[in-house]
Design a protein around this nucleic acid. Structure first.
Lengths: 133, 133
DNA sequence: GTACGTAGTACCAAAAAGGATACTGTAAAT
DNA sequence: ATTTACAGTATCCTTTTTGGTACTACGTAC
């Protein structure tokens, strides 16, 4: 019993949250899906959206998303090569989830003053604020 | 430039999805938050919900969630010790996100016939089905 | 004839995450 | 007198993930 993430059901009996996160796990999958929500993108188009990624990593994350059935890979037999990545119907069903993740990030995660690093909005916890559940 | 997950903004310029996932990253955080959505739980109560976790891991994940400001840890100076974990106001704002993740998992992720393993519902991709975006 | 853009692979090294096991201290229950 | 429950730590080890660099092939542009 020791698999990559929690890919064994025994690890989180009946937890649908981890079940979903299992498929979003990977350092770049979130961003990739986020950008593919707008439109189909070619390999190097994606790369330009992810300045810090290496080719190896981009390929790997795309293959994993493809294996999960969330995105499709279409190769056009031309030269130079042309490969397009797009959400599958199944991938499209993730849109509400991605949007929820994006909405929360927009509202509560900031770059710290020094730049570069993320910081969460903890201010909310200080006052005895009433937040609707 | 190489931090744990994508904790550098340069890795996903302006991507709020990865920003959020950064805080949910960790093998057990999803399940923990899922269970804390219902009610405050003590250390060993959580442990009983996560049969496969080790004490070390549970402690580690809880500390990270606490450091993020998503959960609170309340120690009652009694013996035997009593420590309660609960969502903070900030953590409470994650509920819609957790619910979105849970809804997708419920609908599209199953245990494979052999049991134990997860499987995604790829059937959706076979027919030329029309899925609403 | 050299460089560029395309979409990758292959190989090696580093870092991070996760797991196994043993140990702590107190009080109540058996 | 021993065991149980509680909420952890400490140490070591393995697995998984991620990064770095170099390399491929083809056709077009300079």
């Amino acid at each position: 019993m020791s698999r990559p993430r929690a890919k064994l059901v025994t690890n989180f009996p009946g937890c649908p949250v981890e079940a979903t996160l299992t498929y979003l796990d990977g350092k770049w999958k979130g961003v990739i899906l986020f950008h593919l929500m707008d439109r189909t993108l070619r390999f190097n188009e994606l790369r330009r959206h992810l300045p810090a990624i290496t080719q190896r990593m981009l390929t790997k994350q795309l293959r994993e998303l493809e294996d999960s059935g969330l995105i499709s890979r279409t190769v056009y037999p031309v030269v130079p090569p042309r490969v397009e990545y797009a959400l599958t119907p199944l991938g499209t069903t993730l849109k509400p989830v991605i949007r929820a993740l994006a909405a929360w990030g927009d509202e509560f995660v900031f770059c710290s003053p020094e730049g570069r690093e993320l910081r969460i909005a903890k201010a909310l916890n200080a006052p005895a604020a009433e937040i609707q559940a």
